[in-house]
Computed example of a mutant assay.
Amino acid sequence: MSAQITLPSQRFAATTGEINLTELSTSWLILYFYPKDSTPGCTTQAVGFSCLKDQFDALDTTVIGVSRDSVKAHQNFTEKQSLSINLISDKEEILCRHFDVIKEKNMYGKQVMGIERSTFIFHNGTLVKEYRKVKAAGHAEQVLQDLKALQTAE
């Protein structure tokens, strides 16, 4: 695990205003990166986390999604899918580069740079688990299970 990954202490534009990841009111944070709003896998993942939001809330955990889409695109996605989680717009790829999730991908035979679906669990600002090359289906449920295990082990 890349223990050197820390949370940057700057503000990012999100669906509910600006967010500073180091100033959240919960002791646990799930930060997940996804390629693009309103695409099948990304919708599956966002809806999965939204459906489990109450359970994450009960575990003192904030769930935030990150992509390079604009805040306006995030707001449309949130409205269309009735999402209950916050989404950060990382158009400048500050968080994407910080977490090293920009990777070369094969899109219809062309090599492009895009976000590799990844998730990070933080406890009091310390990275405790990371997932790379995530498959969207069932991921939110897996993260919830792992979070419960991490909290039990405390």
Rank of each mutant, 00 (worst) to 15 (best):
F49C: 05
F49P: 03
F49V: 00
S50Y: 04
S50P: 10
S50N: 03
S50Q: 09
S50H: 01
C51M: 12
L52G: 04
K53T: 07
K53A: 07
D54Q: 11
D54M: 00
Q55F: 01
Q55G: 00
Q55A: 02
F56C: 02
F56M: 05
D57K: 10
D57G: 07
D57V: 11
A58C: 03
A58Q: 05
A58L: 06
L59T: 02
L59D: 04
L59N: 04
T61I: 03
T62E: 13
T62I: 00
T62L: 01
T62M: 04
T62A: 13
V63L: 02
V63G: 05
V63C: 13
I64H: 03
I64C: 05
I64P: 06
G65H: 11
V66H: 06
S67G: 10
S67R: 12
R68T: 14
D69T: 08
D69H: 08
S70A: 08
S70Q: 08
V71K: 08
V71G: 02
V71Q: 04
K72S: 13
K72N: 10
A73H: 09
A73P: 00
A73C: 07
A73V: 07
H74R: 03
Q75W: 01
Q75S: 05
Q75Y: 01
Q75R: 12
Q75D: 02
N76Q: 14
N76M: 10
F77I: 08
F77M: 11
F77W: 14
F77Q: 09
T78Y: 00
T78L: 08
T78K: 14
T78G: 04
E79G: 12
E79V: 11
K80R: 14
Q81R: 15
Q81T: 10
Q81A: 10
Q81G: 09
S82I: 00
S82D: 03
S82V: 04
S82F: 01
S82E: 13
L83V: 01
S84W: 01
S84C: 13
S84K: 14
S84Y: 03
N86C: 15
N86W: 02
N86P: 00
L87P: 12
L87C: 14
L87H: 13
L87V: 14
I88T: 12
I88S: 07
I88K: 09
I88M: 10
S89Y: 10
S89L: 09
S89G: 00
D90C: 01
D90R: 06
D90F: 09
D90A: 03
K91A: 15
K91V: 15
K91P: 07
K91T: 15
E92F: 12
E92H: 08
E92C: 12
E93M: 14
E93D: 13
I94C: 12
I94S: 14
I94P: 08
I94V: 15
L95T: 12
L95P: 12
L95G: 02
